[in-house]
Design a protein around this nucleic acid. Structure first.
Lengths: 144, 144
DNA sequence: TTTATTTAAGATATTTTTGTCTTAAATGGA
DNA sequence: TCCATTTAAGACAAAAATATCTTAAATAAA
């Protein structure tokens, strides 16, 4: 569904968010450990997310990553997905046609349409704050 | 969503099905042309689908691929997806956790559950016959 | 100012996916 | 039997995704 890069990105953001809720910056190493993702790859992905202003980074001692709590409440998962995987999830045709729409649909178009729409709506309504508070309360996990 | 291999496989099967409805066997070259997919790669994928008995192949002059019309009416898209991509679509966790379920969910689990289920149900109820007749009637297209 | 700590950026490596090519095997017809 | 046609199978190649490594830049504190 999502690329590995996107999975790592979402998990990293959720973990950083839980720590920002406690007013703690986190280093790459901690992010990797607590999200069960490879450290160097996660660092690269966080570079992308920093450029997209989804997370803030601070260099040097006592540095690390943080997310503004106010912003977190309005930040949608769709923004993370878009920053890493682009819009393929939203616009792509199930059978890979360049253009595929109601007027000239691929054979699966109608079947996919509502499902894809629901997925889109879900990603656009789920906030990072929602996911982070659920993780913090122990109602969900990031690593096994 | 699906791998390229899976996209090509589904398109190939739909095209072969339209031709089997007219009692015509089709050669790899025709399949590739009419499904807009690379020929050699499509041939390899049809090899897999032949082993899974999803399509029948006949070697030699007047040979090619065909699908039994009776079988076609009960053949679900999910069978093609499973033969090529395995069960990742059905069982995979959105965030890549090895195990992820209601008891120990990833933070996205609940959000994904119903969407994934709908996708599964859709693939398990859509038949190759449905898709082939729609294509044959001109209500959908495979190539642009 | 120097040092330790931390992210940034990009080069490099590995693995997986996608794609092609070559040779073998089967089959129908001359 | 021999040839032309077609799929089968697996080796090979290219591209993309995943992952690591190295060096640079920033910054806080001594």
């Amino acid at each position: 569904m999502f690329s590995k890069a996107c999975e790592y990105g979402i998990k990293a953001i959720i973990y950083i968010a839980t720590q920002s809720l406690e007013n703690r910056r986190v280093k790459i190493g901690d992010v990797a450990n607590h999200s069960g993702s490879p450290e160097a790859f996660t660092a690269k992905i966080l570079g992308t997310l920093t450029k997209h202003r989804i997370v803030r980074s601070v260099k040097g001692p006592y540095g690390g990553f943080e997310i503004d709590v106010g912003r977190m409440k309005h930040m949608k998962v769709s923004e993370i997905v878009y920053a890493i995987d682009g819009d393929s999830i939203y616009k792509g045709c199930a059978l890979g046609l360049d253009r595929c729409n109601a007027a000239e649909p691929c054979p699966m178009h109608d079947h996919f349409f509502s499902i894809r729409n629901e997925l889109k709506k879900m990603l656009e309504t789920t906030t990072v704050y929602d996911l982070a508070t659920k993780l913090r309360s122990g109602a969900s996990i990031l690593v096994r």
